[in-house]
Every structure is written in C-alpha cells, then in structure tokens.
C-alpha cells in the first residue's frame, strides 16, 4: 500500500483538563476525500485545527508523505501545502476579495510594496474559474453574500497549490446551487490528486462526497469505514451511540 499523504497518529489535546481529542489516529491518501463526522463537540474541528496549525498538539505524531513533521502555527501548515477552509471562513470583513485571498502571502512589487493591481488580476482569474458570476472585486467582503464569501475562502485555499485541503463545514452556509458548486469542485480537486479532509455533520454530504469516513465521539475515534461498506443507519449509530457496525 502507498504511503498515506497524511497520517495523524495517537493525537491528543486537552483544554483545562478536558480531553478534547483523545488518542485519535486518522489518515488520508492522495486523491481521496475522508469525511470526519461527529456531533458538535466531538472533537473533529479540534483535531483538524491541530493539522492546520491553529492549535499545537498535546501529544502524538503527524506524518506527511511518511515524514514526521512539526506544525507549530498556520505558517508551518501552509509551508507543507496544507490549506484550510474554516467554518467561519476566516475572512477579514473589512478587506476586499483580493486582499483576503492573498492575506499573509501578498504579491509584492520589485520595491517590496504590496501590488494590489496584480493581486486583483490574479483574483479575477481564479474567480473566473470558480465562480464566474463573482463581480464585486472592489467591495469589502462584508458586502458579499454567503456563497460569494465561501468562494473567496475556497479560492484562497485552491490558489496556492494545496496538496492537503481541510474543509470545515464547507456547505453549512450555502444554498443548493452553491452546494452543488462545492461538490463539483471537490470532485475536480480529487482528480488533481489533492487529499481532502471534509468535516461535516450532514451525513448525506459525506456519503455523496467521501471515500472513507472517520467518526468521532467525545474526543475519541469510533472508527473509520469505507463509504461503500456502510449504510447511513450504521454511520448514524456510530455518531450517536459510538457503536461500530458489526461485521458478519
């Protein structure tokens, strides 16, 4: 079997004595979508924030392409081509789409000044691909609709050649049309060999989009299953009861 793109082994993190993530191991292969399921507070967002550098891990090991790595902050994660689309989108509302897309990685002129025109031109290019209806390049993202904001957040993750993409509830704020757009995008990214962690609490989303699912409950991993091997009800049982499906 090929070396997984990402391996998170025995990861634990505690906040003030509460084990938010307790000895969890998950992995992800190139071109694969792995769903992370669980109730609110099950620890799935926390687990994934350790990978994206937002939280330092308490203990455990992260391997990228088989090599152990240390991720101390979001900059480290980005350097490893790990991009994250946060549930909150993590956009600076007062800045325009281009400034958000390039936040932390601004294009600069020869003199080291930020090159707004170049960034706007690049933003127009990628938005033309992702969301051709997007026109509000001059407005602060606060003035955009939920779907438009989401496309800015997605564009930011995709633009910088992500190898590992983390999507935290990417369709939570979206209408049916936009949800379809995200689903198509996930399919396209998969074909490019990008590995995707998809966090959701909508099992239908997950069953449609994912190859495997890992279910968490109370900070612990209930189990990881291939989507074609389990039914919706069995997944529900894992989420609610923490019970692995019985194999005959």
């Amino acid at each position: 079997m090929m070396t997984p793109l990402v391996e998170m082994r025995d990861i634990s993190i505690a906040f003030g004595g509460v084990k938010a993530v307790d000895n969890v191991s998950v992995d992800l292969h190139a071109g694969e979508v792995v769903g992370l399921l669980g109730h609110n507070g099950a620890g799935k967002s926390t687990l994934i924030k350790i990978l994206s550098g937002a939280y330092p891990k308490g203990s455990g090991e992260i391997r990228i392409n088989g090599e152990a790595v240390e991720i101390h902050n979001p900059r480290d994660a980005r350097a490893l081509n790990i991009e994250t689309i946060y549930q909150t989108l993590a956009l600076a509302d007062n800045l325009d789409a281009a400034s958000n897309l390039f936040l932390g990685r601004e294009l600069t002129t020869a003199f080291g000044f930020v090159d707004d025109d170049a960034m706007e031109a690049e933003t127009r290019k990628i938005m033309g691909r992702l969301n051709p209806n997007f026109q509000k390049f001059k407005d602060p993202v606060k003035a955009l609709s939920g779907g438009q904001r989401q496309s800015v957040a997605i564009a930011r993750a995709v633009y910088f050649n992500a190898k590992i993409l983390i999507m935290d509830e990417p369709t939570a704020a979206l209408g049916p049309q936009e949800t379809k757009m995200v689903a198509e995008l996930i399919g396209e990214l998969k074909k490019q060999g990008i590995g995707i962690f998809l966090i959701s609490h909508d099992i239908h989303d997950v069953m449609d989009l994912c190859d495997r699912v890992s279910v968490m409950k109370n900070g612990q991993l209930v189990g990881t299953e291939k989507v074609e091997d389990v039914t919706d009800d069995e997944i529900l049982a894992m989420i609610i009861l923490g019970k692995r499906p019985e194999r005959t």
Partner: peptide, 14 residues
C-alpha cells in the same frame, strides 16, 4: 487592517 477586521483570520492566515 486585517487584524483589526478579524484577528482570528489574520492569525490563521499566518
């Protein structure tokens, strides 16, 4: 300006 608009976003953007 990004930090003023959304400190968490700025942090997560590195």
């Amino acid at each position: 300006f990004a930090t003023g608009g959304n400190p968490d976003a700025a942090d997560l953007s590195g």
